[in-house]
Write a protein that binds this DNA or RNA. Structure first.
Length: 521
RNA sequence: GCCCCCAUCGUCUAGAGGCCCAGGACAUUGGAUUCUCAGUCCAAAGACAGGGGUUCAAAUCCCCUUGGGGGUACCA
C-alpha cells in the first residue's frame, strides 16, 4: 500500500516553525517510503482571503524544498483540497451517521449543556451528555426540524466501550468511552467541526499515516470512533512531540505576549537580536509575522534551507548517537517514526545557528555571493542592476570573510566596504583605544601611510610583506601599528585579516581613511 | 475537577537488562594558534527527578510519588 501523509494548514498568512516541523516529518515519512505527501487546506474560517493567506505558507514549503504531490496549485485525484469546497462530503457523512443511528440531533440549547457541564465539574465527575433529545419520538423530532429549531449533530458514543490506538510513537493508548461526552460533529448551521471534517477528509484522501503534534492525541479518541462509525479503516497515528518554546516545555506560541517572553530567554535572544538588526536594513519590520517563530524569518535573515531543515529534523528525531549534520537527502533515507522521541523539544537558537554554520561552510564562494547580493541591494549598498565589478568586489569580500559569514545577512555588518570614506563611522571605543590613547599610534600611522602611498602592488600578500619588513626595520612589534591601521581604515576593532581589508579597499580609499583618522586624533 | 501524555548533562539527544561509575553535539570554562574578531585544535566541567519493587544484574521492566505538558468548545 502506498504511504500517504498529509499536512493541513489553516490559511493564516504565516507558517509557524512548529507546524513546519510537523509538515517536515510527514513529508519525510512519505518520501522515505516512496509515498505521497498531500497538502490540504483547512479554510473553514471563511473570513479571510484564502489565496493571500496561503501564499506565505506555500512559499515556506518551496523555500525549504518540500514538494507536495496533491494539494493547492497542483491538484490531484481527490480534489478539491480546500475544506471549504468539500462540504458535500461532510454532509454525506453526517447523513450516513444519522441514518444508521450513530449520530443524533441534539436540540438542547448551549446554555443547558453548559450548566450540565458545570454541574458535573462541581461533583468532580466527568461530564456526559444527558441526551434528552434521544427521548424525542420520530414525529416530535421531525416537527422540531421542520420548524427550524436550533440543533447540533452529535456522535452517539457507546459508553460501554473502550477506544484504543496503537500509536507509532506513543504505543498503546486507551480511553474509556464512558468518560467521553458525545462530541458535536456538526454545528447548528450545518458546518462540520474539525474532528469530524478531518476524519472524513483523511478517509477520502486515503491517508495511511496521520502524523501530527501530540496536542491532538486526545482528539484521537473521538476521531477513531468516527472512523469506525463511518465504516472506514483507521489510518496509523503518530503523535510527535510539539516544538517547545526555548527554555521551557510549553508549546511554542505565536502570541505576542509570549513573543515578548521569548525575546528575553537566553536561548532565543540571539535570533530576536538578529531580526532587530537586519530586518530594518532590508526594509522589513520585525513583528507578528516576522520573528523567530515564523519560517519566513529564517529566510528573511539569510538562513539556508539546509540549516533550518537540519535543525528541524533534529527536534525530536536523531539518526544515531553521533551524526549531527545531515542533509535532507540523508534524513529522508533514514527517517523512521520509531526514532522519534516522546518528550517535547525546545528550539535552541545556538544549535540552529551551529547547523547553519555547517551548511554555510559547504557553500562555494559563488553560492555565498549569490546569497549575499540581494541583501546588499536591499540595503542599498550596491545598485540594482548589479554590475560585474560589484560582483567581483563582493566575491573578494566574501572570500576574505571566510567563516565569519554565517548568515547571508551577515554581509550587512561589513558596511564599511560599501560606504564612502567620508561616511564611514569610527567605532568610538576602538578609536579611543587604538588611535587616541597610544601616543605612538598617530606618528606610526602617518609614517606607514607613506609606505602605503609608495606601494607598487596593493594585494594582500604584498601588503603583508610590506608591513612586516617595515615593522622589522623599525624594530617595533606589529601590534603597535596594525590595530591603529585597522581602526583607521575600517572604523572597527574587528574584521577579516588586515591585509585583506586593505587590499579590498584599495590604495586610494585606505589613504583617504587614514588621513581622516589622523585628523580626528 | 476529569482524561491523556511525558521525564538522561544548561539545551538537543544516544541508550530498547549486563557493552554505561552513561556516549555525541550545541552552549559554557580553560589552553594553543593568528594583527583583531570569527574559525580551527586540545582539554575541563556537566545528567539517569525521588522512592519502592522484579532480577545474579536496571538509565533501561513494574508500581507509587513528584514535577512538567496537552486536552477538556457549536476552535483548529
Amino acid at each position: 500500500m502506498t504511504v500517504r501523509t498529509r499536512f493541513a494548514p489553516s490559511p493564516t498568512g504565516y507558517m509557524h516553525i512548529g507546524g513546519m516541523r510537523t509538515a517536515l516529518f510527514n513529508w519525510l515519512w512519505a518520501r522515505h517510503n516512496g509515498g505521497e505527501f498531500i497538502l490540504r487546506i483547512d479554510d473553514t474560517d471563511q473570513e479571510r482571503n484564502v489565496e493571500e493567506a496561503l501564499t506565505p505558507i506555500l512559499h515556506a514549503f518551496r523555500w525549504l524544498g518540500l514538494d507536495w504531490d496533491e494539494g493547492p496549485e497542483v491538484g490531484g485525484p481527490h480534489a478539491p483540497y480546500f475544506q471549504s469546497k468539500r462540504g458535500h462530503l461532510y454532509r454525506q457523512a453526517v447523513e450516513t451517521l444519522l441514518v444508521s443511528g450513530k449520530a443524533y440531533y441534539d436540540f438542547d440549547p448551549p446554555e443547558v449543556t453548559q450548566s450540565d457541564r458545570e454541574a458535573a465539574e462541581k461533583e468532580k465527575r466527568p461530564f456526559l451528555n444527558i441526551r434528552r433529545s434521544l427521548d424525542l419520538s420520530d414525529t416530535e423530532r421531525e416537527q422540531f426540524l421542520a420548524e427550524g429549531r436550533p440543533h447540533v449533530v452529535r456522535l452517539l458514543v457507546n459508553r460501554e466501550a473502550k477506544v484504543s490506538i496503537d500509536d507509532h510513537i506513543r504505543g498503546h493508548v486507551e480511553w474509556d468511552c464512558g468518560l467521553i461526552a458525545d462530541p458535536v460533529i456538526c454545528r447548528g448551521d450545518g458546518s462540520p467541526l474539525y474532528n469530524f471534517a478531518t476524519v472524513v477528509d483523511d478517509a477520502q484522501l486515503e491517508i495511511t499515516h496521520v502524523i501530527r503534534a501530540e496536542e491532538h492525541l486526545t482528539n484521537t479518541a473521538v476521531q477513531a470512533m468516527l472512523f469506525d462509525a463511518l465504516g472506514h479503516e483507521r489510518p496509523g497515528f503518530a503523535h510527535i512531540p510539539f516544538v517547545a518554546a526555548p527554555g521551557s516545555k510549553e508549546k511554542l506560541s505565536k502570541r505576542v505576549k509570549k513573543l515578548e517572553k521569548y525575546r528575553k530567554s537566553p536561548q532565543f535572544k540571539k535570533l530576536f537580536d538578529i531580526a532587530d538588526d537586519v530586518l530594518p536594513k532590508i526594509g522589513l519590520e520585525p513583528g507578528e509575522s516576522m520573528n523567530p517563530v515564523m519560517v519566513a524569518y529564517y529566510e528573511a535573515v539569510g538562513f539556508l534551507p539546509a540549516g533550518v531543515l537540519n535543525g528541524l529534523s533534529r527536534l525530536g528525531w536523531s539518526f544515531d548517537d553521533k551524526t549531527e549534520n545531515m542533509s535532507l537527502e540523508f534524513v529522508t533515507e533514514h527517517f523512521t517514526l520509531g526514532r522519534v522521541v516522546k518528550a517535547p523539544a525546545g528550539l535552541d537558537s545556538d544549535k540552529l545557528l551551529a547547523y547553519q554554520e555547517h551548511w554555510m561552510g559547504e557553500l562555494s564562494t559563488e553560492e555565498k555571493v549569490d546569497g549575499c547580493l540581494p541583501y546588499l541591494v536591499k540595503a542599498k549598498y550596491i545598485c540594482d542592476p548589479i554590475d560585474a565589478a560589484d560582483v567581483r568586489f563582493v566575491s573578494h569580500l566574501v572570500e576574505a570573510l571566510g567563516e565569519r559569514l554565517k548568515l547571508f545577512s551577515d554581509i550587512l555588518q561589513y558596511d564599511e566596504y560599501f560606504v564612502s570614506d567620508a561616511d564611514m563611522t569610527f567605532d568610538e571605543k576602538a578609536f579611543e583605544k587604538r588611535l587616541r590613547k597610544p601616543e605612538e599610534a598617530g606618528p606610526l600611522l602617518r609614517e606607514f601611510r607613506q609606505q602605503l602611498a609608495a606601494a607598487d602592488s596593493f594585494d594582500a600578500d604584498a601588503l603583508d610583506v610590506l608591513l612586516h619588513q617595515w615593522v622589522e626595520a623599525k624594530g617595533i612589534k606589529i601590534g603597535k601599528v596594525i590595530h591603529a591601521l585597522r581602526v583607521a581604515t575600517t572604523g572597527k576593532p574587528t574584521g577579516p585579516g588586515m591585509f585583506d581589508c586593505l587590499a579590498l579597499l584599495g590604495k586610494d580609499r585606505c589613504l583617504a581613511r587614514i588621513d581622516r583618522a589622523i585628523e580626528l586624533i
